[in-house]
Structures are given as structure tokens and as C-alpha cells.
Amino acid sequence: MRIAIALGREENRVYPGPFGHAPRYAIYEVGEDGEVRLLEVRENPHAKEHGEAKHAKMRALLADVALKVGARFGHGKNEGAFPVAGRLEVGPVSLEEALALLKARRSSA
């Protein structure tokens, strides 16, 4: 399974704002054995965009990702407007903390 973690300007922190506004995403592969391996850091060229057109662009950008991990999803009247296959809100934590929360979630599933 692939996951995308929203990254802030510092690559070791989860982006503190809405998932779709993150400047980049750390794309990880989670193996059957639970091992998590970084595949790439993917830039988000749509970070400053808004509206319905952005949603389609974001779906295309992260089409290969099953779980999105971020500090929060949506904002204001658009809360939950970005359709996701799965998501995990972790707050504005370090990347290490986000990965630990993801592993804890997998262990309890």
C-alpha cells in the first residue's frame, strides 16, 4: 500500500494546514510485513489553487496512493470536499511521529 504524508517546508514536519495545500508529499510504500519505505518526495504544483478543478488535479497527482496522512483535511465550508480513499489526521507533528502513528494504526487494525 502506498501512503502520502503532507510535508511542510521542512521535510521532517507534517504540513500544518489542509492536506491539499501542502507544498510536497512524502510517498511511502508499506509492505505486507509492515515495513515502511520512502519512495519519493513529490512536489505539489497545485498547492496554491482552489476550487473544483483542484480536486481533479489532486486526485490525478495522488492516484497511486491509498492513504493520505496530514495535519487536517479540508477547511471551512469545503471541509471534506476532497474525496479520499482513506485518510489519517495526525496534527502538525514530526514526520517520525506521523510514521509511528501510522504503524500504531496498522497494528490495531
Score class of each variant (00 low, 15 high):
Ile3Thr: 13
Ile3Ser: 13
Ile3Gln: 03
Ile5Met: 10
Ala6Leu: 02
Gly8Lys: 08
Gly8Thr: 06
Gly8His: 13
Gly8Phe: 03
Glu11Gly: 11
Asn12Pro: 05
Arg13Tyr: 14
Arg13Cys: 11
Val14Lys: 03
Tyr15Thr: 02
Gly17Ile: 00
Gly17Pro: 04
Phe19Lys: 00
Phe19Gln: 00
Phe19Leu: 01
Gly20Tyr: 05
His21Glu: 00
Ala22Met: 00
Arg24His: 12
Ala26Gln: 08
Ala26Val: 00
Ile27Cys: 06
Ile27Tyr: 06
Tyr28Phe: 12
Glu29Leu: 14
Val30His: 10
Glu32Val: 09
Glu32Tyr: 08
Asp33Ala: 07
Asp33Leu: 07
Asp33Trp: 11
Arg37Ser: 06
Arg37Trp: 03
Leu39Trp: 05
Leu39Tyr: 01
Glu40Ala: 14
Glu40Gln: 08
Arg42Thr: 06
Asn44Leu: 01
Asn44His: 10
Pro45Glu: 01
His46Asn: 12
His46Phe: 15
Ala47Leu: 10
Lys48Asn: 09
Gly51Asp: 09
Glu52Lys: 15
Glu52Phe: 14
Ala53Cys: 02
Lys54Gly: 01
His55Leu: 13
Lys57Gln: 13
Met58Lys: 02
Met58Thr: 01
Arg59Val: 10
Arg59Trp: 06
Ala60Val: 04
Ala63Phe: 09
Ala63Lys: 15
Ala63Pro: 11
Asp64Phe: 05
Ala66Glu: 12
Leu67Asn: 08
Lys68Gly: 12
Ala71Ile: 00
Arg72Phe: 05
Phe73Met: 02
His75Ser: 15
Gly76Met: 00
Lys77Asn: 10
Glu79His: 08
Pro83Cys: 02
Gly86Trp: 03
Arg87Met: 05
Arg87Gln: 11
Leu88Ala: 11
Val90Gly: 07
Gly91Trp: 11
Pro92Val: 06
Pro92Asn: 07
Leu95Cys: 11
Leu95Lys: 07
Leu95Phe: 11
Glu97Met: 14
Leu99Gly: 08
Leu101Asp: 04
Leu102Ser: 07
Leu102Val: 08
Ala104Leu: 15
Ala104Cys: 13
Ser107Tyr: 12
